[in-house]
Design a protein around this nucleic acid. Sequence first.
DNA 1: CTAGGTGCAAACTCTTTGCAGCTGA
DNA 2: TCAGCTGCAAAGAGTTTGCACCTAG
Lengths: 138, 138
Amino acid sequence: MSNANTHSELDLRADGVRITRQRLAILHVLREASDHPRAEDILTRARQQDPSVSQATVYRTLAILEKAGTVQRNEFDGAGARFELADRQHHDHLIDLDTGVVVEFHSPRIEQLQAEIAAELGYDIERHRLELYGRKST
Amino acid sequence: MSNANTHSELDLRADGVRITRQRLAILHVLREASDHPRAEDILTRARQQDPSVSQATVYRTLAILEKAGTVQRNEFDGAGARFELADRQHHDHLIDLDTGVVVEFHSPRIEQLQAEIAAELGYDIERHRLELYGRKST
DNA sequence: CTAGGTGCAAACTCTTTGCAGCTGA
DNA sequence: TCAGCTGCAAAGAGTTTGCACCTAG
């Protein structure tokens, strides 16, 4: 990859990623989505723009975009990975146990504590996963 | 379940969990393990004590023990859930990306920050998942 | 033109389940 | 005794892959 987080078609092409109809459709779906869709959802939506898109291409494209830093894969509890564009600031997720809605948040203080803890244990953190599962307070 | 976190055979029996040879073998494996084994590892080890244990029984028993609060299921990155006895204090995990070794840690400060963030977003946290992925610092 | 991408369908991994026989309390 | 447990094998869900054809650059 030429550099971290390539997001435009131009960046991707510079990374040797060929821009096909199918990939444009999938990128479009990801740009429009605000709900962390699953592979199956992405397939359904991409087919509205280009009915020829196949499941295999969705998975292959998501894998390529993930390597390129364009897409982030989330494996929340429950079946199936959920995807989002990685072009925003890093954030963690709060999952509503009643509705499945995903709320994004970011806490520099937690991140710093994580780094401190890892350092105490003799490690450098490469990435982390923080997910809160809860319900709306009454 | 009669109460939270039942761990002895007696507690389990009080919860209506029948104590069979197979379940004893699986419990034994979990008690001896210090490495967060996968279902397949648990099967292999349990068979050393009781060769009749089947894969189906391992999965069914782990599900029962999880409901009883005896076992905690972890779904780290990479394929397959990894299990541990839930009889120790709550903790999070740091996974060594080079060796796969899992280091446990606990940070009351992070937990408190999580609760504060959730409260700001209008949520009560039911559970959370925090995993750090890193490498030994040089 | 041709390296790389695609659809299709089969294969894979991990986990769950139907069923008929077995067993702990 | 008999409700609950078990092994076996088949089924599921989600994801990956082999292959022959297609296409972006």
